[in-house]
Amino acid sequence: MSYLKKSPWILHYDASSCNGCDIEVLACLTPLYDVERFGIINTGNPKHADIFVITGGINEQSSVVVKNIYDQIPSPKVVVAVGICAATGGVFRECYNIKGGVNTTIPVDVYVPGCAARPESIIDGIVAALSILEEKRKAMKKGETPL
C-alpha cells in the first residue's frame, strides 16, 4: 500500500465467534492500535462499507445474514476473515451446527490467522485488504466486474 485515495470504512459482523476475535477487532479501533489513523472507520451500515470484517465460523443461521449483508455492500468490496474460526471453523469445526469457514458462503480476500487473532495481525490484514480494494477499484474503472 503506497497511498490511499479514499477512507475505507469497515463493517464488522460476528458470524458465530466466541467473542475473542470480536473484541480484538474492536480493540483495533481504540487508542492503542487506532486504525482510525488510516482513515478507517467502523460503521454499522452495510451501504457505507468497503471492507467486510467477519469473525467466527458460519452456522446455519448466520449464513443467510452474512450473505444478505455482503450483497448490500456496494462494489468494490473486500472481505476479511478474522481468526481461525472464520478461516476453517477452528475448534468448533466439528460442531453439528457449524458449516465451516466464511468461504463456504461468500468469497474471502484476506485471512487473518490467530485464535484469538492479535490486533497487530488484524491491522496487517486490513492494510492488505486496502491494496486489494484499490486494485478492484482500478479494475472497475476499466469496466471489469470485480468479485
Binding site: N59, E60, Q61, E94, Y96, N97
Partner: peptide, 17 residues
C-alpha cells in the same frame, strides 16, 4: 434456538469427519 438438525442433542449425530 434454530439449528440445522432438529433436536441435535438427542442421540449422537454422527457428523462425518
Amino acid at each position: 434456538i434454530r439449528t440445522k438438525d432438529k433436536h441435535p442433542f438427542y442421540n449422537t449425530i454422527n457428523k462425518e469427519d
